[in-house]
Structures are given as structure tokens and as C-alpha cells.
């Protein structure tokens, strides 16, 4: 295991000191390690100002990337005094960190809104904040509605399938399901991915690059997050989407409290505020991610844009996190060496 001493250097390199205001608020502080940009702005507008400010809690944003946050969690693991009270990560990253035993379990008594959380999204060590799912996204002028991931292999789409390189794990899961595998067996994905390679898919380093490909007609169809499709469509890109017969694979952005957090009571209050129905609706409209609580009702137009029907939700394929954590290095190796190579 990683010892405190062995990680001292990494801690020094990775730790960034959040800006601390000299005036302490009456309700104390909470240090939130999160993403910048829209996400941090929406947290301020929907969660912090309306819910936590009136309680006198001073919010300190520790803005960084997921990788920096993970490194800090690992580096501070053995420390009694952690630098973060609330940590935001995707479900995959959160599970990997939870396996290292760095998070407290979420106490229902301190987070009353936990009772409203959608059942399939519940985890003992984290609250689900927002979620989306991988679907098939396509240009309706060029492509008849696809049904399955196997449509990517159709010779008529040779060179017209776009793959977001960053999503290698979730694309592998979709292909595994299409080839008779499961969320706990990705092995069949290897053969079907090699078959897909023969159809010359275009790989894009980021989602932003992929949408440029869709916009210019370079590619016609791709596996993508519903939230992305919603935002791109809103900005005028000619797109349609469909839940594949294999089922949609959700991605959940979660929040947890490290065991060595210094302001735990405020951290739980923060997590509770993140689950507030009104706060969740703010995120849905601006980012296209769905609410994770039952009491947040989306307006009809938004529901059509980012919602799932009960039948689609029933077919959600939630990752087998333990299997995923064990397989990810090997599948990335396969992805880099064989699929991309």
C-alpha cells in the first residue's frame, strides 16, 4: 500500500492551497474541491448562494481537475487533517478512490434529501449530483435511425463513425453488450472493436472535436452522452439520438466527504443542498444533465430533451464498478495498442 512517507513528495507537488478569506463566517467554512467553469458557477448560483449562504457557511472553492483531486486524496490519505471537505468526481473515479477507504459513508440523518435520491443511483460513500447516459447520436439527414452499437459496423458507415477517445471505457462497455458480453464481462468487446476498426472509425481527442466532425459532415454517427447531444442540438447542430437496444450506460457525477475532512457538518450540509430539487433543476437547464432526485420535476420541454422514459431507465446498464476498476488498465492498453494502433 502507499505509505504516507512515500507520498510526501506527491502531496507537496499536488496540494494547492485554497484561498481562505480572513473573515470567518458564523457557520464556519467548507472547502469544496470541484471543477471550474459552468459547474462551479452553477454550484454558486443554485446551491451556495440560496441555501448555504443564509446558514452563514463560508464556501471555499478548490478548483482543479479530477486528476489533481484524485492525487490529493491519495497523497492526503494518511493525514489526519485533509485539505478538502467535499470532493466532486465521476462515479468511476469516485469508486476507485472509495476502494482506497478515503471517504466517509453518507449518514442519512445529516443529509435528509438522501431519501429523495433515485434508487439505482444510490451509493454508500457518495451522493449522486447529476447524471447522463451514453446513447447513439446521429445526423438524421444522413443516417436512418440506428438501433444498436452493431450499426457502427455497417459498411455504409465506413469512415463515418466518430468515437470520443476519452470515453474508451464506456464505448468498450457498449460494444461488449452488443457482442454478447455484459457489464461484468468486457472480453467480447475486443473482437467487435477490432471489427469496428476495419470500418475505419474516426477518433476524436475531445467531445468538442467530435461535434465539429458531426457539424461538418465528416462523421454521421457516434456514441455520446445525452447531455452533450442536448447542448449541441440547442446550439443548432442537426442531431438526433436514440437509446441503443443494448441499453443506455449512465455516468453519474458524485460528491463525497473525505474521512479527514475538517468541516464535516458543513460538508454534509453542502451535500444535502446539492440534492435540493430547485438546485438540481438549475443544472438540468444549463448543462443538460438529469436530476438525481425524485422531487425535481423537469418542465415538459426539458424532460423531452434530457429525460429518459421509465422503460429506458429500466434498461440502464450501471457499470460493475469493481470489475471496471480491475479491468480499466488492461482495456486502455488494448484500446491504445490494438484498437487505435
Amino acid at each position: 500500500m502507499i505509505s504516507r512517507r512515500s507520498l510526501l513528495g506527491a502531496a507537496a507537488a499536488a496540494a494547492t492551497i485554497p484561498a481562505i478569506s480572513p473573515a470567518r463566517a458564523d457557520g464556519g467554512q467548507v472547502v469544496v474541491s470541484t471543477w471550474g467553469g459552468d459547474y462551479a458557477d452553477l454550484l454558486a448560483v443554485n446551491v451556495e448562494k440560496p441555501i448555504l449562504d443564509p446558514k452563514g457557511i463560508e464556501i471555499i472553492h478548490d478548483i482543479n481537475s479530477s486528476d489533481a483531486r484524485k492525487t490529493k486524496l491519495i497523497a492526503e490519505k494518511m493525514s489526519r487533517r485533509g485539505s478538502m471537505d467535499v470532493v466532486h468526481l465521476s462515479d468511476t473515479d469516485m469508486y476507485q478512490m472509495a476502494k482506497l477507504g478515503v471517504f466517509e459513508d453518507v449518514p442519512a440523518a445529516s443529509v435528509p434529501n438522501l431519501a429523495e435520491v433515485l434508487q439505482p443511483l444510490r451509493m454508500p460513500y457518495a451522493i449522486p449530483h447529476i447524471f447522463s447516459a451514453q446513447l447513439l447520436v446521429y445526423n438524421p439527414d444522413k443516417v436512418d435511425q440506428p438501433k444498436s452499437f452493431t450499426d457502427f459496423l455497417d459498411p455504409k458507415y465506413k469512415g463515418r463513425v466518430g468515437i470520443p477517445d476519452l470515453n474508451y471505457s464506456v464505448v468498450t462497455m457498449g460494444m461488449a453488450l452488443a457482442a454478447g458480453g455484459s457489464m461484468s464481462n468486457w472480453e467480447p468487446a475486443k473482437k467487435i472493436l477490432m471489427d469496428l476498426k476495419k470500418n475505419e472509425p474516426r477518433l476524436y481527442p475531445s467531445h468538442e472535436d467530435l461535434v465539429q466532425g458531426l457539424k461538418s459532415g465528416e462523421i454521421w454517427l457516434a456514441p455520446e452522452w445525452l447531455a452533450r447531444e442536448f447542448m449541441w442540438k440547442k446550439s443548432g447542430v442537426n442531431l438526433a439520438r436514440v437509446v441503443p437496444t443494448e441499453g443506455a450506460i449512465p455516468v453519474i457525477f458524485q460528491a463525497s466527504v473525505p474521512k479527514n475532512a475538517q468541516n464535516k457538518a458543513n460538508a454534509w450540509a453542502y451535500l444535502d443542498a446539492m440534492l435540493n430539487a430547485k438546485a438540481q433543476l438549475g443544472f438540468a437547464d444549463r448543462m443538460g444533465y438529469g436530476p438525481t432526485v425524485t422531487d425535481a420535476t423537469l418542465p415538459l420541454s426539458l424532460e423531452q430533451g434530457i429525460g429518459f422514459t421509465p422503460a429506458e431507465e429500466a434498461k440502464f446498464k450501471t457499470p460493475d464498478y469493481e470489475y471496471q476498476a480491475a479491468q480499466l488498465p488492461a482495456i486502455l492498453d488494448f484500446w491504445n495498442k490494438d484498437f487505435k494502433g
Binding site: M1, I2, K99, A325, P329
Partner: peptide, 14 residues
């Protein structure tokens, strides 16, 4: 670190 061992779950093993 380069002489350590990697484990997908424990990450770095001395």
C-alpha cells in the same frame, strides 16, 4: 516509484 508494483485496486504497492 518506478520500482514499485501497480495494482488496479491498491494503485501503488511498495
Amino acid at each position: 516509484y518506478s520500482l514499485n508494483r501497480y495494482s488496479p485496486t491498491e494503485l501503488m504497492v511498495a
